Amino acid sequence: MTMPASPPVLIVGDSGSTKTVWRIVSQGETPEERRQGGFNPNYFSFEGFAEEVRRAFSEPEWAELRGELYFYCSGCGVGEMREAVEELLQELFPRMRVEVQHDLMGAARATCGDQPGIACILGTGSNSMCYDGVQEVDKVPSLGFILGDEGSGVDMGRRLLRAYFYRELPADLRQPLQALLPGGREELVERLYHSEGPATFLAAFAGFVGEHRRHPFCAQLLEDCFRGFVQSHVLKYEQAASWPVHFVGSVAFHFQEELLQVLREANLTPGKILKEPLDELVRYHRAHRVESL
């Protein structure tokens, strides 16, 4: 007797340097969520990522799932890297149709949907692109946490730590910041140059900026960060004057008051500001599924 085929499922994953979140949608059931550590193929090992996926999807029947899997990941903008991640996930989910895209495409689909707009990411790092409702039409390159990531948590941490070590940080902020980095310069060098996840380390200091956002120094730091992103990215697009500017990411979400002020000063049209794209990505893919769910 032939067993009936299992109903198709939809799996959507979103990964940055800090965390990876999966949403599993089965017919007629409440979507499930799974979380694991962050992944960027430029900085993290494929073996470690695969092991975390196996832990997140611990039940043996996951290997038998069929349907569609979409994975959005920072660092997957280059074809070779995207293909490597796609092959890895295809091995882990052999019966799924797997598609891997960079996280910026996820931001565009989540915020713009089928409409044109400028999609931006402000989280651990930063990125942007012009999206016509179907595909990328223009993109200012992202230069990573050493040369770029303007307006991101990395940018905030970088500016804050420079001010601290160059003795430019106001006295009333020095002591509370020192408590977060008791090892001083030696700890800083170790975390930046000899440990995994230096961008995540820098971005963690965005929490300090948030706690002291009303302090004149931190208020100016936020303004400088967001103004730097708008000038380096958004205003480089000729469509910026007429297309809405959307944002995805924890930094954009938690500091949207300061971000919106900078956008207004630049005469830009704010669009959606999402902390995470997954809910909207699930809606997008349910509307564009190969097999109905």
Rank of each mutant, 00 (worst) to 15 (best):
P116E: 12
R54L: 13
F145T: 00
Y166W: 10
V78L: 09
Q135K: 15
C130M: 08
V251M: 05
E29M: 05
D103F: 00
E32H: 13
F201W: 12
M105L: 15
L222M: 07
H246N: 13
E196S: 12
L259K: 00
V245I: 15
V290I: 14
P7T: 13
S26R: 15
P41Q: 10
D132Q: 08
V25F: 06
D155M: 05
D279Y: 12
L188V: 09
V251G: 03
Y284M: 01
P176T: 06
S232Y: 09
L104G: 05
D14T: 01
L180N: 08
S17N: 08
D132C: 13
G249C: 04
P60H: 13
Y166Q: 09
A287S: 14
V12R: 00
G133H: 09
V21A: 09
C112T: 03
R97G: 03
T111Q: 01
D279A: 12
V12A: 01
C73K: 00
R283Y: 04
K139H: 14
S195P: 06
K236T: 10
A241Q: 11
Q256N: 05
Q90A: 07
C218S: 13
R54S: 12
M3F: 14
P277V: 11
H212S: 07
M96T: 06
L278K: 01
T20M: 06
F71G: 02
S152Q: 13
C218M: 14
G77D: 05
F208S: 03
Q27R: 15
P116W: 04
V262D: 04
P4K: 14
T18I: 06
A206M: 11
E257W: 12
W22V: 03
E83K: 06
D172C: 04
I118A: 04
E80V: 02
N40K: 02
V234G: 02
D138M: 06
M129F: 13
N40E: 11
Q175D: 11
G48Y: 01
F217H: 00
G207R: 09
A50S: 10
V245M: 09
V248I: 13
A107W: 00
L235N: 06
G13A: 15
F229G: 02
G184H: 08
D14Q: 05
N42R: 04
P277R: 00
K19C: 04
G123T: 05
E136R: 12
Q239S: 15
G144Y: 01
E32N: 07
E258Y: 14
P176M: 12
R82H: 09
K236A: 09
L263M: 15
K139E: 11
F201C: 10
L235P: 04
E61L: 14
Q178W: 08
A84C: 03
K236I: 09
H254Y: 08
V134M: 12
L259Y: 02
E80T: 03
G79R: 08
P94H: 15
F255W: 05
T111L: 11
L177D: 13
V189P: 03
S250Y: 03
